[in-house]
Nucleic acid binder design. Structure first.
Length: 243
RNA sequence: GCACUACUUGCCG
C-alpha cells in the first residue's frame, strides 16, 4: 500500500499522467476509502487537469465509494480554475443532493469559484446563504470576497466587508491587508494604500514578502521610483528577502 | 483532519 503510493507520487511528479492513472487504478483495486480518492484528486488536479481529476472522481461512483464534502470542494477548485463554472456549480449542488450539509469551507470554495469568474453577485449570494444557515464565516471567507471585489475594482464595497469582519469577531490579517493595499494601488489611491499599511503595522501585523511585493507593484504602477527604493530598503531592514 | 484566501518571477501543461 505504502509502496503503491510512492510509485503514484513518482508518476505524478514526472508528469506522466498515463502511468499515474494506471497506478491509481491498480491501487484502488485493493479497496480504498474516500480519503484516498480525495488525495489522488488533489494530486491529479494540481499536476494535470480538471479532466484528470474527473477520471478519479468518476471512479468513486463506479466503485460505490461515498464521496465526502471535501471531495466536491476539491473538484470545484480545479473546475473553476479552468473556467468550467457550470460543472463547479454542479459540484456544490451535489453536496446537498448527496445528503450533506455544505460547511464553511464548501461555501468558501463556492465564493472562490464565483469570485474567480468575476461573479460578484454570486459570491455575495453565497455569503448570504452561508449566513442564513448560521454558519460562521472566517478570515478566508472575507479575504475571498475582498479579493473578488478587488478584481472588480469595487473599493466601497470592500470597505463594507472590511468593517463587517469585526461584527463576526474577526480581525483583518496580513492577507486581508495585502488585498486592500493592492486594490487601492490599482485605483491610484497611493496614500490610502499607505495608510492601510500603517493600519496593519499599528495592529502589530508584520509585512511579509507578499506585502512588500504588493507595495513595490503599487509604487511602480504609480510611477514612484523613490518609494520603490524606500520599500527595498525597508525589506532589507526587516530581513525579508526578495523571492 | 483529505477541501477554501493575497503579490512577484520562472518552469511545465
Amino acid at each position: 500500500a505504502e509502496e503503491g503510493m510512492v510509485s503514484l507520487v513518482r508518476a505524478v511528479k514526472n508528469g506522466d499522467e498515463k502511468r499515474a492513472l494506471e497506478v491509481f487504478y491498480k491501487l484502488e483495486d485493493e479497496g480504498r476509502e474516500t480519503k484516498f480518492y480525495n488525495r489522488v484528486l488533489g494530486m491529479f488536479g494540481d499536476a494535470f487537469s480538471s479532466e484528470a481529476a474527473e477520471k478519479v472522481y468518476d471512479e468513486l461512483g463506479r466503485r460505490n465509494v461515498r464521496p465526502s464534502v471535501q471531495t466536491f470542494s476539491i473538484m470545484m477548485k480545479y473546475l473553476a480554475a479552468e473556467g468550467r463554472m457550470d460543472k463547479a456549480e454542479e459540484m456544490f449542488s451535489l453536496i446537498k443532493r448527496t445528503g450533506f450539509d455544505p460547511n464553511r469551507s464548501a461555501f468558501n470554495s463556492l465564493i472562490s469559484a464565483r469570485g474567480k469568474r468575476g461573479d460578484i453577485r454570486g459570491a455575495e449570494r453565497a455569503f448570504e446563504e452561508l449566513r442564513s444557515l448560521k454558519i460562521h464565516p472566517n478570515n478566508v471567507t472575507f479575504n475571498l470576497l475582498l479579493s473578488a471585489l478587488r478584481d472588480a475594482g469595487q473599493i466601497r464595497k470592500m470597505k463594507r466587508y472590511f468593517t463587517l469582519m469585526r461584527r463576526f469577531g474577526l480581525e483583518p490579517d496580513v492577507i486581508t491587508f495585502s488585498i486592500v493595499i493592492d486594490a487601492l494601488g490599482k485605483k491610484g489611491h497611493v496614500r490610502a494604500a499607505e495608510s492601510a499599511l500603517q493600519d496593519m503595522k499599528s495592529r502589530d501585523i508584520q509585512p511579509n514578502i507578499v506585502t512588500y511585493n504588493t507595495l513595490l507593484k503599487v509604487y511602480a504602477a504609480n510611477d514612484l521610483p523613490d518609494r520603490v527604493e524606500e520599500t527595498r530598503t525597508a525589506m532589507e531592514q526587516a530581513g525579508v528577502r526578495p523571492n
